[in-house]
């Protein structure tokens, strides 16, 4: 009876394996202290074989429970989803319910938004609020990765760990691999041009802000992997990154805010729609595409740079 009560207590307090975590808010033990703790634990395990058996048994029963729950859960989810998908309307057959909304997009999309590419017109004109949110999702991810990975060189202790990391990345800075350098030399101009082409043609051909920005970001990554960070740092400093991201996001928020404000209040917003098929068409779609594309490119290159060397732009230039 006591055992059952104990087991319920363990299960309900969620501390099956984590007895160590219940404690004070003292700072983590330092390296030397950790080594001491490790030595003591190994010694106590060797002296007391029962303890090891108990931990082993606990771990085995936990593993058994965990794997069986995981298996049952996955199989249930797969079964439910397969059943649901089989009951949905078929792909390609016209569903009388879905038609109401989609019909207007397809038939009147060109004249109402001015964009030949209806998908761009839809995400940046009809349902622009969602795209406003989506571009800020990317910005959030960039901030979170900054928080986790950014090494602040002013506060950096001359600890062996950080110093070694930076030195190692400096060694791997310029690629000593001929294939990579040649590939970067040949391909990165093509990729960057292609990215700009996709961006500018968002309203005419498939593409748009997100795709164009991702391709641009990939081009910048290839350039910095092949030629080293020095070459890219000349055109992409921290200041440029911050100013560009800030202005792109602000422009997006306020432009769309203006459109929502005028649309809801019935005022005419004097944004020209242009002739469909030309580059300068589609109202606000071209500027918004450029803004989103720039944010995405800076974010992608920022991720790569933070992962490689702990800061978006050079340590030297700040």
């Amino acid at each position: 009876m006591k055992k059952i009560f104990k087991k319920i207590k363990e299960l309900s307090s969620g501390e099956i394996m984590s007895n160590i975590l219940d404690g004070s808010t003292e700072p983590d033990p330092s390296r030397e202290q950790l080594k001491e703790i490790k030595k003591e634990t190994i010694k106590s395990l060797e002296e007391n074989p029962d303890f090891e058996a108990i931990v082993e048994r606990q771990r085995k029963s936990f593993n058994l429970l965990y794997y069986s729950f995981a298996f049952i859960g996955s199989v249930c989810l797969i079964g439910v989803l397969l059943y649901l998908v089989s009951m949905l309307p078929r792909y390609g057959v016209e569903n009388p319910r879905t038609v109401e909304v989609v019909k207007r997009y397809v038939e009147n999309g060109l004249e109402e938004t001015g964009a030949v590419n209806i998908v761009s017109g839809m995400i940046l004109d009809y349902r622009a609020f969602d795209t406003l949110g989506e571009s800020h999702v990317l910005f959030t991810a960039l901030i979170c990765v900054n928080i986790l990975l950014r090494i602040d060189i002013k506060n950096m202790r001359s600890d062996y760990e950080d110093y070694y990391t930076i030195k190692r990345d400096v060694y791997y800075d310029m690629s000593h691999d001929g294939v990579l350098r040649l590939a970067a030399f040949v391909f990165s101009p093509c990729i960057l041009t292609f990215g700009i082409y996709i961006l500018l043609n968002g309203q005419i051909s498939p593409g748009g802000g997100f795709s164009g920005g991702a391709v641009l970001g990939a081009g910048l990554i290839l350039m910095s992997a092949g030629f080293g960070f020095d070459k890219v740092d000349k055109i992409f400093t921290l200041k440029i990154n911050n100013i560009v991201t800030f202005s792109a996001l602000t422009f997006y928020s306020f432009a769309k805010g203006y459109v929502f404000f005028t649309g809801a209040n019935g005022i005419e917003n004097h944004i020209p729609k242009g002739t469909p098929g030309a580059i300068l068409s589609g109202g606000l779609i071209l500027p918004l595409d450029i803004a989103v594309g720039i944010v995405v490119a800076c974010t992608m290159f920022g991720f790569y740079s933070l992962f490689r060397r702990g800061s978006v732009a050079s340590h030297i230039n700040g």
Binding site: V119, P206, F210, S211, A214, V215, G217, I221, Y304, F307
Partner: peptide, 27 residues
């Protein structure tokens, strides 16, 4: 028949997120 999604998937999925994973493995 959705080329927008195809471009984005190729650039982000196969390109950038793969690169970031390899970077993490290195670290």
């Amino acid at each position: 028949e959705s080329p927008d999604l195809a471009i984005t998937e190729a650039a982000v999925g196969a390109g950038i997120s793969g690169t970031l994973f390899l970077m993490t493995l290195k670290k």
